[in-house]
Design a protein around this nucleic acid. Sequence first.
DNA 1: TCCTTATTTAAGTCTTTTCTTATATTAGTC
DNA 2: GACTAATATAAGAAAAGACTTAAATAAGGA
Lengths: 108, 108
Amino acid sequence: MHAFDVLGDPVRRRILEILAEDRHASGEIVAIVGQEFGITQSAISQHLKVLRDHGFATVQAEGPRRIYKIDPAPIVEVDQWLERFRFWEPKFEALAVEVKRGQRKRRK
Amino acid sequence: MHAFDVLGDPVRRRILEILAEDRHASGEIVAIVGQEFGITQSAISQHLKVLRDHGFATVQAEGPRRIYKIDPAPIVEVDQWLERFRFWEPKFEALAVEVKRGQRKRRK
DNA sequence: TCCTTATTTAAGTCTTTTCTTATATTAGTC
DNA sequence: GACTAATATAAGAAAAGACTTAAATAAGGA
């Protein structure tokens, strides 16, 4: 499964959005995403596995909880593939400026 | 089908790579991609339809030929979704520089 | 008009993905 | 050690995706 396929699923994209904000326990993600999409804990656990297996997230046990943290490496890869299209539109130049200005709050 | 799903298929990614270089007739794409992936003209035509239907490419009839041209709009959209992850890694800052330096040859 | 070339569309098969329910695992508490 | 809470895994059903072959469409030339 290619990184783009991983990002193809709306549940997984939502999970990544949540993890982009902060680290979260599996159960917290289940609480949010489960409600939003109306799917079971099991389904979400399976999506978390896909994210793990493809390097989008890392886990750390904290007692009985599994704390998920984003790993941007595969996203960088995707971003680099996209690179070849960036000269096609002024929109991309605008984006470049955005990125350069970036430097928002950063979490470890 | 989400834009990320469109990009999830290796054949479609290859077609987009080709179209990023220049406009091409369907048959030219078939010649390249068909050989590389060992799939039929029909299969490729179906991939081209997906690209059309999701706004990644536009077609223009030229006699019996269909000339395909890339349309970056959905790629920009994807790129914007990715935006929220860009502050996570120095790699992204490096990319930003890359993009800013960009300004390669442009085709219409 | 008939034939050829370029391409799309239809129909059906096979594979992969995404769920569900049921069960297993593991940590902490009584 | 038994019970509960948090999570993962197994098995199987249903849906979606990516092919194939066969047929349709449309342009251009003899």
